[in-house]
Write a protein that binds this DNA or RNA. Structure first.
Lengths: 156, 156
DNA sequence: TCTTTTTTGAAAATGATTTTCATTTTCATT
DNA sequence: AATGAAAATGAAAATCATTTTCAAAAAAGA
């Protein structure tokens, strides 16, 4: 699954070239890193992980690549309120189900949940449709997060 | 409603003192500014508006006061993805209904909507309950936002 | 291979937010 | 009203994530 041969997922080449971008080594490795974790990595997290396989990479390139991947739609960018953006693979790339986030305001822990997702999605669809019509807004995305304290943080 | 006499809303004094804080002039004026607008002001927006009534105020104090007000629960802090935090009065202070946000990724415009809110709230309650039990999470807050293009931005 | 365009990395710049610290203000007590 | 301790303030400096600049390196096409 992580395509360690250095070629990257073949179907991605097409996605990149189709958009006029080149599939380069840094881009492949950054995608590999994101594919190989279930965490919500920050740009610097990615930078450190990438560094192992490709020590010469610069933080700048990581930022640029992440921005590009968000633009192409291969990854999502999130803000969980700790001052740095977090990234995760968009579903479809991996066998990853659509989920939302539970954010602990105590320790910053993030829990992905898929419970109730179907109902949420259904309501979201309905809401999107209604809002699109009323406000003439072309909705492309949504964000749902719950904030609170995780079990550990509740006990001081 | 904006208590222009400089005393601030009387019931707020209690809220502040109850938490061990003092109700000062800068704090009153910052609250007045937030009460007097329907916009989603950034810290610097607040700073500029406050400056009229209280020219000696510093940006630092604005930041500190906003943080305090968030902590007390009088205002909410939002991130709409443009790199600066935005603040708005929590409902209850004003005759303000609970609402969610529609964010235009083209121009940054924010639309508050209350449509479908009742259904959303109902589902959120149910979801919160379920998630709280399953993950032993004490949920205090939620965030729902839709992203897309507003009517103006759709036409280039 | 040669040429053009894209991508890269290091260093510098940016910009929002936070910290530091000396001064001023508040408020419970004289 | 005066006093003194605790809290709040403001200016300047510090932080820190992210962006920009720019010259060199890598990729795609001829």
């Amino acid at each position: 699954m992580p395509w360690r041969d250095g070629a990257g997922a073949p179907w991605l080449h097409g996605k990149f070239k189709g958009c006029g971008y080149r599939m380069t080594m840094p881009r492949q490795i950054i995608l590999d890193v994101l594919s190989g974790t279930a965490d919500h990595l920050s740009a610097e997290d990615v930078y450190h992980k990438v560094h192992n396989a490709y020590p010469s990479i610069g933080l700048t390139t990581v930022y640029r690549t992440l921005e590009l991947l968000v633009h192409i739609g291969l990854i999502y960018k999130f803000d969980f309120g700790d001052g740095r953006s977090r990234y995760e693979l968009a579903e479809g790339s991996k066998s990853d189900r659509h989920h939302h986030h539970l954010v602990c305001t105590g320790c910053g822990r993030i829990i992905d949940y898929t419970d109730f997702i179907d109902e949420e999605i259904e309501l979201l669809k309905k809401t999107e449709k209604g809002l699109s019509e009323k406000y003439n807004f072309k909705i492309t995305n949504h964000l749902i997060q719950f904030y609170g304290l995780c079990d550990r943080c509740q006990n001081k």
